[in-house]
Design a binder for these strands. Structure first.
Lengths: 222, 222
DNA sequence: GTCTAAAGTAAACGATGTAAACATCTGGTT
DNA sequence: AACCAGATGTTTACATCGTTTACTTTAGAC
């Protein structure tokens, strides 16, 4: 899509999109460090300076490429959510939350290079909330998580004031696991092993989030 | 320490360590991207090519600098653990595990730049297990975590076969939270807020790890 | 049709990582 | 005490990078 690649024409037509695509493929094939301004423009068949008509500089180009990667993450979550078929409101809300975690981890495990590009190589977590990282529904991964938690609150399973801390807890665990499973100590483990770990982690985290109030506030180690 | 900086001498004496120090300070002051081979050698008062007598290239130098940063993380954990004064074996084992999380997050929140240098800017999580990242006890952060869990197993609070999955669970949550709190959506929150969140997260995670078996294996969303 | 502004090119500059050839120091052997 | 070999720094050079400046082409509005 958006591959308007005219031949021999002086004006490209849609160079901005073409540069992002070129950079994306470059990153997937050769790693984030290969995403250099000259390499990207070279691949797009254009002179280096041409990029400056569409981006302020390399950094902005890299962010655009990274955001394109993150869109895949959002889409993966949306896809998992669209397959939830539970009808009862409360169980459905829970399933929608699990779908966020499952979609997140499925993407990280299925396309580790892309995942890495988006969240480590080209942009940091400080860009996680940028609107350009949104999926087809127009919501970014973080918003999809919050939406799911708000959904749980709406059916009365989660106190409204617990939505924010729960978001942190979910995001921490899932993102942390994704890091370990794709780049950390688990990166060598067989795919099936990481799959069941992922599935279990998501279930445990959701359990933990919903078990609120059943644990007292002040008890300590004694 | 290890600042053997001779004046006017042709030979430096301890250039390798000096380069790591120079690079470390450069990274703390100006960010990871400022850690360039020429900048580091310049700061050490030495010609660029001199670095090649001690490192294969820029990448190896950056890793060495990153590992130096990670040592601070290990030391922070060790420090927290050394302040545990509980005597009873079981509660003590639990406190030692909590100290791992507390030390980890204290370091991340106290010195976010250093934390970021070590785990994001200069080296990725794939270096988390390198021995050079060890603290004074000679153990790396990940080893300290495993040690604490083995300690819990030794006093019978945790099934031995749960040590490994528990390590994943702890590491995921704590590292994920550190990412969120230093670079993610929480990076703007007041320090006290993040502190209580951190404290609570660690306690919740440890609770979760120790609550094993009290949850059935096969129940689903219904 | 013309003409202006958008979108591309070309050439140049300073900075970077790295390699090769050269210079200097240091420590052990006689 | 003189010497020499290897370790350690320096100099010079090169290809590549990001970015700027001045120029060229082209598409579309009037």
């Amino acid at each position: 899509m958006a591959e308007a690649t005219p031949k021999g024409r002086y004006h490209h037509g849609n160079l901005r999109a073409a540069l992002v695509q070129a950079g994306y493929h470059l990153a997937v094939e050769q790693g984030p460090d290969a995403v250099t301004l000259r390499a990207v423009t070279r691949r797009a068949g254009v002179s280096p300076a041409a990029a400056y008509r569409h981006f302020a500089g390399l950094e902005e180009l890299r962010v655009a490429i990274g955001l394109w990667s993150i869109r895949g993450l959002a889409r993966s979550i949306e896809e998992h959510q669209s397959q939830v078929e539970v009808a009862d409101p409360a169980p459905r809300a829970r399933a929608m939350l699990e779908a966020v975690g499952d979609g997140y981890l499925a993407f990280a495990l299925d396309q580790p290079r892309v995942f890495r590009i988006g969240l480590y190589g080209l942009l940091g977590m400080e860009h996680a909330e940028l609107a350009e990282g949104a999926g087809d529904s127009g919501r970014t991964p973080f918003q999809l998580l919050t939406d799911a938690l708000v959904g749980l609150a709406a059916v009365g399973v989660l106190p409204a004031e617990r939505v924010e801390p729960a978001a942190i807890q979910c995001w921490s665990s899932v993102h942390g696991f994704a890091s370990l499973a794709t780049q950390g100590p688990l990166r060598g483990a067989p795919r099936e092993v990481r799959d069941v770990m992922a599935r279990r982690l998501v279930r445990d985290v959701v359990d933990g989030v919903l078990a609120v109030g059943s644990r007292s506030e002040g008890d300590e180690t004694s």
